[in-house]
Design a protein around this nucleic acid. Structure first.
Length: 1089
RNA sequence: GGGCGAUUAGCUCAGUUGGCUAGAGCGCUUCCCUUACAAGGAAGAAGUCACAGGUUCGAGUCCUGUAUCGCCCACCA
């Protein structure tokens, strides 16, 4: 009875923190998220998602919250559908990013930092392991933070399976993958220019380089042309450059062979000023032909002669490769001019006629910047500087030290992703209808490459061909991202995977250097290792345990042997080291292990049940910037190594921006901790709001406010402009607008390392009004259920029946709406239209259930005649809770518990769930077509219109809401029979007494009136002639306008001829109704005088 | 420089293959602490759908161009 009723357990307002804690505990105890491959017999359909592993560099922000909410929705939905569902959690070691933040933290705290450990290492002591230990500690700390955040959000990952890209299982997968790719010739070592940071002296990945616009100069320098004997001919060629100092390393000048004005220079030579080096003029299509009229700024600036410095410019390197040019590096790793790092011909030209020994001596040791000045001065002094023009251009800078990046030549490992076995697979993976015709250049390359591979006896695993183990099923949502994916692959370059870092998977290759010509320098045989070493080839032994690749480096003293050791061969590693091999000091690019994520998490290379059940996964859910870095590489690796796609669908979601339209990111420091939002609004409110904001196109703008830690009130912080990118961020220190004199620190201040929270100035949490939307909805749902429980608690819990006569119009209407909502929701989720999913349920629960259904049944629900309505109400709420559960798991779980306690059977056949303790594993509702009742919906719609009309005329005539007044209704004859039996609903919802209803009702004197096409409502004794007149006049002009519009349309012969018949008929009907309405309005106006 | 996307009410955004006197939430105005909910209820005002052309019986929706903003990729000639 009521005193015992669970209604009383529910507070008047929804308080998320208690509910979230309790519900999380129930899920945990029930092991509700655990997945087992053995379940496959019981649940034949498998569903899986691997989490995009967050970097352990920092806590998660709202972008992650969005990403993981969407995944959780899909996971929870499929779990309820009865699929064998796995959400695999884990984190990413994020090589350079993590190493950098840890180094920074150590520096800030005055502890020994990276450079100190490097010093130790240089002294032969163990610095590397010690430093890795520090990073490991950081990783443990942040992994715990991240896991905590995901759990607070309600993410239903199978937490027992949590992985880390550097744990033993993932390490094994990395070793195996590297070994197999190496063995198959898909990994090689080569010289290439890397992004070198001269300040910190490490190579950087492309995405770690920040482009900044810099005001620079364009220098036009004249090089003298010489004849065959080396004598100046008196001619000069003028090269254009922004980097004069690199001329010291020039090994050619290039001209476009199609350049009619300059082509004759090809084949001649110039003498490089200062250095004296004699270098050729080569023809290369890369060179832009000058054209002062051109739209292309390059063509306007170009001189037609390009100085070629292969060691200091990536494009020049390519040109150098094409023309077999010397590569001369004139810089030391710290960016100073040096003859000791590959300036091999320094001496050769020193005594040539035009070498300037004095200047060269001065240049050695100068910084890049000084050297530039020296060179420019030299040219100017000799009248060899033709011109200097100002030029604004983008220059790469280190995101760490902020100095300009120096392209620097070094040995790196590459994955040959341009091989058809990798790139080809990525292209073939695409669903045919999302694929466009291939670019001609690639199409050609592809054909050649495949023929070559076939000739070499390499078997390709190509979809649609014999023996293929996978199909072209990769599909992007939204579709347009398929193009991004395809374009990226058509223009792909080999992937540099080595990084000069300590934090990461060490490259599993051991080297030894042999003297030139020595073909068996290493006594492998004597070690009784499986495998035979031969020079310059790969070994192919039965078990393929060891693979040797021989290489000759340009600057090496002799050929270098590289031995790749597969996993679980530590004994072999020791033996190699014993005979003088050393392991490559570099580590692998983070993305190498990330690329294996759908494999490594499932236990590959072992043939596990997990792998069989859940790879391919169903969908990858990610932000768009990662399509190239990650999606592509997973597709290539999964298909090559495992013969399966890593996933079928790729859903690309929006980016979260702050209130200034800036991307929310760690590097900017404007990220918002989801826990802050959970604190201010609750996890469900956050999730629901994020779900509603997830449309197909639009990035999400989230203005960020702060909560004063002294008073708990919300305010908009002061913003300042920060950094080279001029971004708008919250000032590190904020004054409390409420507590005078009190201060606080912003999360930006802390994230950017500018301030630390103190007792006097504590860290202020962030919040955002955006989430009021979800919070209000949570509360609405909470109270609607509270209402229902109070009614059900007093009522019997019958088994109920199917649909039938005893259902009222309102019952049939809401059940019809329910059935159609289920269908709509299923469709939205299947198509990854998350905002439609959330929006439809918002509208259903708030507008249909709360505003109309509950209000309509209120007068009768507690009476014996309300028994069926009680069942319908219980059912409708139950279905709502089940459908909302994926996006609002906590509140729905809690309310479902109470609902099940009071009404174990809801009572409408076809919609009752199976008995289950927890909503998280309950059945997803099935749409019963038999419940769809369009007639009931139509009649109810008319009632709604009538009630709204009455309310309007009441409001306009200032009738107090509590006053029950008399009305009479004139209505089209065919509606009388439908409306009059339900006049009690009208009376209750409009708070009126309906004294008369029919098609011949006369307007009483002194009645206010409202007119619609089929209806007129007379509000008795309420005439406010003035208000009435102005309202009717406006109405008249509205209707007249509409009539004019329709008449215009219908008088157009082309319309009546060409438009679909039903639309024309619709227009005619509408016109008729409007004309009737017009007459009625006119009549009323006339009566008013 | 190449590509993609956006521009709709004061704000944040929907608007499915063209059929629209264009919708929602917030904010705003008026009224109501009515026994689920004031984080609520009722009613209301508010838009030359960025701009200019075009296709069509009909354009927010399709095409072309312009402007502004955002993102991705490339680029130190």
């Amino acid at each position: 009875m009521p005193t015992e009723s669970p209604t009383n357990e529910l507070a008047k307002q929804y308080r998320p923190e208690e509910v979230e804690r309790d519900v999380a505990k129930r899920w945990d105890e029930a092991k509700a998220f655990a997945a087992s491959p053995q379940d496959s017999s019981r649940k034949p359909k498998a569903y899986s998602i691997v989490i995009p592993p967050p970097n352990v560099t920092a806590a998660l922000h709202m972008g992650h919250a969005l990403n993981n909410t969407l995944q959780d929705i899909l996971i929870r939905w499929h779990r309820m559908l009865g699929d064998n569902t796995l959400w695999m959690p884990g984190t990413d070691h994020a090589g350079i990013a993590t190493q950098t933040v840890v180094d920074k933290r150590l520096q800030n705290e005055g502890e020994p930092a990276l450079k100190d450990y490097k010093q130790l290492e240089a002294e032969g002591k163990d610095g590397r392991e010690q430093f890795i230990g520090k990073v490991q500690a950081w990783k443990d700390e942040y992994e715990a933070v991240i896991t905590g955040q995901l759990k607070s959000m309600g993410c239903s990952c199978d937490w027992d399976r949590q992985r880390f890209t550097m744990d033993d299982q993932c390490a094994k997968a990395v070793r195996e993958a590297f070994f197999r790719l190496f063995k198959d010739g898909l990994i090689y070592r080569g010289k290439r220019l890397v992004n070198w940071d001269p300040a910190t002296q490490t190579a950087l990945a492309d995405d770690e380089v920040e482009m900044q616009d810099v005001d620079g100069q364009f220098y036009y320098m004249k090089y003298p042309v010489i004849d065959d004997e080396g004598k100046p001919t008196g001619e000069y060629v003028t090269v254009a450059t922004t980097r004069p100092e690199t001329m010291l390393g020039d090994t050619a000048v290039a001209v476009n062979p199609r350049d009619t004005a300059r082509g004759q220079f090809i084949g001649k030579r110039v003498e490089l000023p200062i250095v004296g080096r004699r270098i050729p003029i080569v023809g290369d299509e890369y060179v832009v032909i000058p054209d002062p009229e051109s739209d292309d700024s390059k063509a306007r600036m170009a001189s037609g002669f390009l100085k070629v410095t292969p060691a200091h410019d990536p494009n020049d390197w390519e040109i150098g490769q094409r023309h077999a040019l010397d590569v001369i590096n004139v810089m030391a790793p710290d960016g100073t001019i040096s003859r000791d790092h590959g300036w091999d011909d320094f001496e050769n030209w020193l005594n040539s006629s035009h070498a300037d020994k004095q200047t060269l001596d001065a240049l050695l040791g100068q910084s890049r910047e000084q050297a530039r000045k020296t060179v420019v001065k030299w040219f100017e002094a000799r009248d060899l500087m033709a011109e200097i023009k100002p030029y604004r251009h983008a220059v790469g800078h280190s995101y760490r030290s902020h100095v300009a990046i120096e392209p620097y030549l070094s040995d790196q490992w590459y994955v040959k992703v341009t091989d058809e076995r990798l790139r080809g697979a990525a292209i073939d993976a695409m669903a045919p209808d999302q694929r466009q015709p291939l670019a001609d250049a690639y199409e050609f390359e592809r054909k050649l490459s495949r023929e070559q591979l076939e000739n070499d006896g390499v078997k390709l695993n190509v979809p649609g061909e014999k023996g293929a183990t996978w199909q072209s099923e990769l599909r992007f949502y939204p579709e347009r991202y398929a193009r991004t994916f395809q374009n990226w692959h058509e223009n792909l370059r080999d992937w540099c995977i080595s990084r000069q870092l300590w934090w990461g998977h060490r490259i599993p290759v051991w080297y030894a250097t042999a003297t030139a010509g020595d073909k068996t320098p290493i006594p492998i045989d004597s070690m009784k290792l499986p495998g035979k070493v031969t020079f310059n080839c790969l070994t192919e032994e039965e078990n393929n345990t060891i693979v040797v690749q021989a290489m000759a480096g340009r600057d090496a003293t002799g050929p270098t042997f590289a031995i790749c050791v597969p996993p679980d061969c530590s004994e072999i590693e020791r033996k190699l080291e014993a005979v003088g091999f050393t392991q490559d000091p570099d580590v692998l690019d983070t993305w190498f292990s990330s690329a294996l994520w759908p494999l490594s998490t499932m236990g590959w290379p072992e043939d596990t049940a997990e792998l069989q059940t859940w790879n391919p996964t169903n969908v990858l859910c990610t932000a768009r910037e990662i399509i190239t870095l990650w999606v592509s590489r997973m597709v290539m690796f999964n298909t090559y190594l495992h013969g399966k796609l890593p996933f079928k669908d790729v859903f690309i979601h929006a980016m979260i921006q702050d209130g200034h339209g800036q991307k929310m990111s760690k590097s900017l420091g404007n990220g918002v901790d989801p826990n802050d939002i959970i604190h201010s609004h609750g996890a469900d409110a956050m999730r629901f709001t994020l779900t509603s904001m997830t449309t197909q196109t639009q990035d999400v703008r989230m203005p960020v406010d702060m909560v004063c830690p002294h008073t708990g009130q919300m305010f908009t912080p002061k913003f300042v402009t920060s950094g080279s990118s001029q971004s708008r961020v919250a000032a590190p220190i904020q004054d409390s607008p409420f507590a005078k004199g009190k201060k606080m620190t912003s999360s930006f201040g802390v994230a950017s390392g500018q301030v630390k929270p103190t007792d006097d100035a504590p860290l202020a949490r962030n919040t955002s009004e955006k989430f009021d939307y979800g919070r209000n909805f949570s509360n609405k749902l909470w109270n609607a259920t509270r209402f229902a429980l109070s009614k059900l608690a007093e009522a019997e819990n019958t088994d109920g029946g199917g649909t039938g006569e005893q259902l009222s119009l309102a019952d049939r209407w809401i059940l019809s709406r329910t059935a159609r909502t289920i269908e709509a929701v299923n469709k939205s989720l299947a198509e990854y239209e998350f905002h439609n999913y959330a929006g439809r349920l918002y509208q259903f629960v708030w507008n249909d259930v709360c505003d109309w259904y509950i209000e309509a049944v209120k007068p009768t629900i507690s009476t014996p005649q309300g028994a069926r309505s009680r069942q319908v109400l219980a059912t409708v709420l139950d279905v709502s809770l089940r459908m909302l559960h994926p996006t609002m798991p906590f509140i729905t779980e809690r309310l479902w518990e109470s609902l099940s306690a009071v009404a174990p059977k809801r009572g409408v056949r076809g919609l009752d769930p199976n008995e289950n303790d927890l909503l998280v594993t309950a059945d997803w509702p099935v749409a019963d077509r038999a419940l769809v009742d369009l007639h009931a919906e139509d009649i109810f719609e008319k009632l709604r219109t009538l009630i709204t009309m009455i309310r309007e005329v009441r409001t306009v005539n200032k009738v107090p809401p509590r006053e029950c007044v008399e009305v009479s209704v004139k209505i089209a004859p065919d509606l009388v029979g439908e409306i009059s039996p339900r006049q009690n609903i009208v009376e209750s919802l409009a708070n009126v007494k309906l004294v008369a209803i029919g098609d011949t009702i006369e307007k009483p004197a002194d009645a206010a009136v409202i007119v619609r096409p089929m209806v007129e409502v007379y509000l008795h004794n309420q005439l406010d002639a003035e208000a009435e007149k102005s309202r009717l006049t406006k109405h008249l002009s509205d209707v007249t306008g509409q009539i004019k519009n329709l008449e215009g349309r219908l008088s157009n012969e082309n319309y009546t001829k060409k438009a679909p018949a039903h639309l024309v008929q619709e227009s005619r009907d509408k016109l008729t109704a409007l004309k009737r309405e017009l007459e009625a309005v006119k009549k009323q106006l006339a009566e008013l005088g």
